[in-house]
Nucleic acid binder design. Sequence first.
DNA 1: CTACTTTAATTACCTAGGTAACTAATTTAT
DNA 2: ATAAATTAGTTACCTAGGTAATTAAAGTAG
Lengths: 147, 147
Amino acid sequence: METHQLFHTIHQLSRELAKQANHTLQPFGLYTAQWSVLFVLKEKGKMTQTELCDYLAVEAPPMTRTIQRLMKQGYVKQVKGEDRRVKIIEMTEQSKAIYPEWEAAILQMNDRLLTGVPDEQREHMKQLLSSCLMNVKENAQKGKLHE
Amino acid sequence: METHQLFHTIHQLSRELAKQANHTLQPFGLYTAQWSVLFVLKEKGKMTQTELCDYLAVEAPPMTRTIQRLMKQGYVKQVKGEDRRVKIIEMTEQSKAIYPEWEAAILQMNDRLLTGVPDEQREHMKQLLSSCLMNVKENAQKGKLHE
DNA sequence: CTACTTTAATTACCTAGGTAACTAATTTAT
DNA sequence: ATAAATTAGTTACCTAGGTAATTAAAGTAG
């Protein structure tokens, strides 16, 4: 089977979704990377930067940058942990207050973009993609071990 | 249904695949963006930059940059068309000669990454994602029309 | 207790891709 | 035929995310 096309479609879909999300968030002065951090913090409460990186599967340097921007905007604050290397990140009262607006806009966008895709199919895609992602990560590691 | 997760998985999978592809191409001094152009040129023959942009669904500015890099490496050359605005891009003899090596490396990687994913499932995913992409693009346009 | 190693985060620099503004060539309209 | 609008490509600048090298704090030998 022609895997080029499959990978290209994934890449294209990913970019298109990011573009739409950025467009949706623009009126709020937010970008997708910022939003993803705020979303996780709302869901999970305070977290260290490393925990955020692990959860979002992003390397540390971009995370540092995203958090610094969120701090500058006043949407997030850093608290020093017992371990003085660690920086614990949590939402400010301000961002907790505005959060529902952001979420509503994103949910509305998600709904609009997936109009016509039945719920079963969304679930099915999620399952397929998740298992594919795990597979890719495993086989990537195998590739490295053979070096 | 929770669309956040679906979109996040797509994004993550896309990044993971790009990372792997870059790793595979590194020994050849190529990056994914370059490879995607070379792949299309091999498949379709000479094309204008706009045609390349349309085919790969990429905006013009990044394409300009990618092509300039490929020219600097001697893998691609520009020919002026009848319409003197247009730049027709084609592979050089050199890159045609090396191409099979690049392709072999990529095909091997694709195969390795999808080990354990049956062929039917790959095809199924491609179908699902393609239809989802079309859907998203249509609904994105509708969003714009409502402004 | 000291020396080595690991870990959290940052800094610097790279590629990818998007938007806005611009130039130059070609169409289209008047 | 000339003016206006469109089109191809470029330039400048932005965000996203990755790697390598660095710093500072903890942990782990010896």
